[in-house]
Design a protein around this nucleic acid. Sequence first.
DNA 1: CTGAAAGCGCTAACAA
DNA 2: TTGTTAGCGCTTTCAG
Lengths: 351, 351
Amino acid sequence: MLKKRITLKDIARETGVHVSTVSRALDPVERKNITEEVVKRIQAAADALGYRPNRIAAGLRTNRTMSVGVMIPDITNLIFPPILRGIESVLEPLGYASIIVNTDSDRDREVRLIDVLRDRGVDGIIHAAVLRSDPSIAKAAQDGLPVVTLNRKVEFSDIPYVINDEDAGICQMLRHLRELGHERVAHIAGPQDLSTGQLRLAAFRNAADDLSVAVDEELIVTATRFDEQEGGRCLAALLSSGKAFTAVLCANDRLALGAIEALRERGIDCPRQVSVTGFNDMPLLELIRPKLTTVRIQQHGAGRAAANILLRLMNAETPSVDLETVLPVELVVRESTAPAPRLPLFPRPLS
Amino acid sequence: MLKKRITLKDIARETGVHVSTVSRALDPVERKNITEEVVKRIQAAADALGYRPNRIAAGLRTNRTMSVGVMIPDITNLIFPPILRGIESVLEPLGYASIIVNTDSDRDREVRLIDVLRDRGVDGIIHAAVLRSDPSIAKAAQDGLPVVTLNRKVEFSDIPYVINDEDAGICQMLRHLRELGHERVAHIAGPQDLSTGQLRLAAFRNAADDLSVAVDEELIVTATRFDEQEGGRCLAALLSSGKAFTAVLCANDRLALGAIEALRERGIDCPRQVSVTGFNDMPLLELIRPKLTTVRIQQHGAGRAAANILLRLMNAETPSVDLETVLPVELVVRESTAPAPRLPLFPRPLS
DNA sequence: CTGAAAGCGCTAACAA
DNA sequence: TTGTTAGCGCTTTCAG
């Protein structure tokens, strides 16, 4: 049996004033219009009875639930927990709760979950899902619900977004490889239906162009998922292309780890024979040998940034937030990159 | 400007019936008491207008928000995301949303967050925080709020809990080491204010007793956190004890990884010279060399189990759930354990 | 400064 | 089978 909760009415009865007075006395803003002595009496009674405001009831009345929805593809993906902590670090102290949902990058699920969140009356949504286009979130925004996207932008909309400077990251990495003397750099690209996969491939082409590195289309191979297995498969594909390369720039860390593993299986040493680079700087990378050279993106910071933008959207009547927030990235040079070998070891007969 | 939502009243106006009729027609249970034709008309109008029920309002009326609170120490800890997915996998299809909060294993935060969740009217709480005692969650349970704890039990209470069979895991691991010929097994224990730390240490003593392995108190050293750094520090402490050992059974994977790293730094080979074992089988372990021998616990399964128990607690008037659910664990033998060297390499002069 | 009253959107007795 | 009514707990006009 759920114990009855203390309500404003209980306090009103206890103190002999009207509920509306109690409501005012307990509201830090309205409190100033109440006699100090009365406020004190009410406060005391509230404390004594262990009063806790019912946010559901307040929400019904005010149309503000003090909760936000957070949509991510999959919480077990290592990059998302820090993002969530970042979001929480700004929202929680202000009294917001987050309802977190996993989309599994499934479009149907995504539209359904948006409805789920709206049904619960969230005051806003942070949308870190990564499908490249989705009308559902745009519709929610059009209906006036504050929305911020993370890691991606919704095309043809004025939904604010927070992204990491992928372009700069890829470019810095390619430059790093160039400085080590790598002339023939392969790219293992991510899934092209995910924004990061597509952005990083485009960035790779741009960077190559800027640095006057020739791009050999046969040295670009696209993974179907961001995981080690695909990294291994793509590396095998690169090898069997018969084209020479001395470095592999991968679209994320897991692809890179898979690639290094595949090299090892074939007796090819990273970084002595082939340099491999990642992207994201996911946790635990320090524990894996060779320590991966990668690009660190701000995960916690991205969460914070998105939350701050959402706050402004939710609270200001005239939002006036920047449409675009680009967070700087940082090159992290570790052990998986080394000077290019004098002679590329490929092509060579494969066992 | 938030676009006005369609309410029951709108549908009632549209179809010329009373709101309560609309409410019934849209409720799968009550629907059977309404003329089929009317139901159809109402359903059509609801669809046409894009009606979405307001769960806040319903919750206020029914005292059920269809949301549950989930308390964990820290979402960035690798073991929790799978647990959350497990919870979600049973609750989400039934229409429940989860409000996830991070306690950071801080007692004050923990009591505050329980209030936060109750203020939001959650129908129940799954509590995976790991402080060994806390009256706050017990109080919530006493007030009639359905509560299930995960990975730990609240002493002197009838709160149902789900735990992994730590005892069996530790025992199997110790037996595995014994079978490899290890006679002198050290233990790096986890923080003793966390239930897992304490349980596993107790299990280690029990197992040693059962298997007639002598326990040398100097070969038990306690970490202050479950991380690699502490694993390293504890290993150093073991070495400087001057006592011989050929294997280190660690209270979790991260401690084990830190220990192996510390061995490597000293030029000691794992597993040839010293075997090291972990606990949890956290993700990505396959990528780290030597691949860690560990005990796999059911994370997803634990989440599911806890959610199912909570469901029964929330829905049955006569709960009748088992107080204790113990999930089986599985020994995962990989590469960090090997036959004991003929002669223990310690003690020996330390550089 | 405080009280009265209305109402957020929905559900659930009770009536018809 | 449907309508009427009341009310969940709170905020917020409007009076006094």
